[in-house]
Nucleic acid binder design. Structure first.
Lengths: 278, 278
DNA sequence: TTGACAAATGACTTATTAGTCATTATTATA
DNA sequence: TATAATAATGACTAATAAGTCATTTGTCAA
């Protein structure tokens, strides 16, 4: 166990300096003063080490933030506390934060992507609950959009101090972000991300979605929908998926029927893709 | 020349799908239907291909944006035009945009970092001139900060449609960003990034800065400064660097004297680092 | 048709790295 | 102290990939 921790610490340092890909296991073990074989007694593979690192730190960071948010009674301080805790955590684990931000878009390892996605969703959940608590009904239509604004601003400023070694006045940064968040929350009238978009993004598109998955999705949506036009269009589209009988023009028309309904956005997008590729 | 273009096109596709690191030259040449040797007749190395790609597309993207900004007479449309052109360009060159966003933080190739940094600065310059034109004097103290807000928001939303294949209503996105930008520009009172920070970030810190470089920097700043307290403190600190004579307490005090002066922020940070490491 | 030149090839060299496993060292136990 | 069990080693294998160069193929003018 102690060996495992040693490897994780040293690897983290090297990863942050050189990147994960560019750091061979041999270098990690040299840096630890152990043999290569010893590494594989602690971790089945290099990938397992990476996953372990992400879990270890993300759990800490998320737990810190979650704890602070849940234990801040005073709403006036809440936003400031949130930002402060987050940046404090990023700073404390800056080596990890660097890796995480880098691999967020870079990685092609399936398991890693899933992991990163998972923690990203957790963060979004925290931000959303924070927004709801602070602004309540007022942001009903803009809250999902606001999440992406907050994430964008946090990313921009994090990158600044993580990758430029710029001196950081954390208090000022948090004050500044609190002001910006309040501004955006109270005055935004044209949100880009709607509740439906947000739902969509929870199920990120696989490279290929099968016909069966689309059918299943249609069946579920049909139940939730009242409007007869959209409902009938959906049912026809489903039948056409099971056994193609309709002409392209009719299909296109049906797609047009459902495209504007908020619950059908995702499905209509998938169907457009499906028929375009076919 | 045509061969070069073929390679660039095909490589771009593969890079966007799999990442640069994960795409061997052999795969590129197979995909082009040429031999490995032929690749090396067009490009001296894989790195040269990457640089060529970045130059090719960044020049196009920046030129597009710059042209639109310069040729939009009506200020009311300017911001919208800027966002629209940018996202249009990103969409048009989405394979490249993906690579660029990924490698922005990931890359460890020195030449690549310099390239990316260069184009990033160009973008910042365009954004700055746009802000100055639109808001003028009103944002004198917040304009540098505003750049990072805009970049953050743009990044956040770009990642969304680049990596999630989300369907994009570009008009709505741009409207939304115009509103947000106007909000932030007209109401921000607590900027985080000041003019001085912005200057600093232009010269990103090397891993190690030598004593000589700090001395040189102090000499230059001394000339620009009027205030006697800061000026004298700087001179004493310089002498102490040349030949250490002062006690740690005195040095600390002198650093405290200069730390708040806007022109000394950078130097005081470097000195803090310097004495901490020593 | 031929010879000279250029273009293209792909087997080969060199280098790197993840992961293995027979061997050795260490520790615990009787 | 002897023996068994456990931990650690690092030379080795297999795989991958960048870049080279002797050889082949194609082109075109004489």
């Amino acid at each position: 166990m102690i060996k495992k921790q040693l490897i994780m610490e040293k690897a983290l340092e090297l990863f942050a300096q050189q990147g994960i890909e560019a750091t061979p296991v041999q270098q990690i073990t040299d840096y630890c003063g152990i043999s290569k074989g010893a590494f594989y007694l602690s971790f089945k593979s290099k990938d397992e080490l990476i996953i372990a690192l992400i879990d270890h730190f993300m759990i800490q960071i998320i737990a810190d933030i979650d704890y602070m948010v849940k234990n801040t009674e005073n709403d006036a301080e809440l936003l400031y506390t949130f930002y402060y805790t987050t940046f404090h955590s990023f700073h404390k684990h800056s080596d990890f934060a660097k890796i995480f931000i880098k691999e967020q878009t870079q990685s092609f390892n399936e398991e890693l992507i899933v992991k990163i996605h998972y923690y990203d969703r957790l963060m979004e959940g925290i931000i959303l609950s924070l927004i709801e608590r602070l602004y309540g009904e007022k942001v009903e239509n803009t809250k999902y959009d606001l999440i992406y604004c907050i994430k964008g601003l946090m990313n921009s400023y994090s990158a600044l101090f993580l990758f430029n070694n710029a001196p950081l006045n954390r208090e000022l940064l948090c004050q500044s972000l609190v002001e910006k968040t309040n501004l955006l929350a109270s005055h935004t009238s044209v949100p880009f991300i709607t509740r439906e978009d947000f739902q969509m993004l929870k199920h990120p598109i696989k490279e290929e979605i099968t016909k069966e998955q689309i059918i299943e999705m249609i069946e579920q949506i049909s139940k939730e929908i009242e409007e007869p036009l959209e409902k009938e269009s959906l049912i026809l589209l489903k039948q056409h998926l099971v056994e193609p009988t309709l002409s392209p023009a009719i299909v296109k028309g049906l797609l047009e029927n459902i495209r504007k309904h908020p619950h059908c956005k995702w499905v209509s997008y998938l169907l457009f893709r499906y028929y375009e590729i076919e």
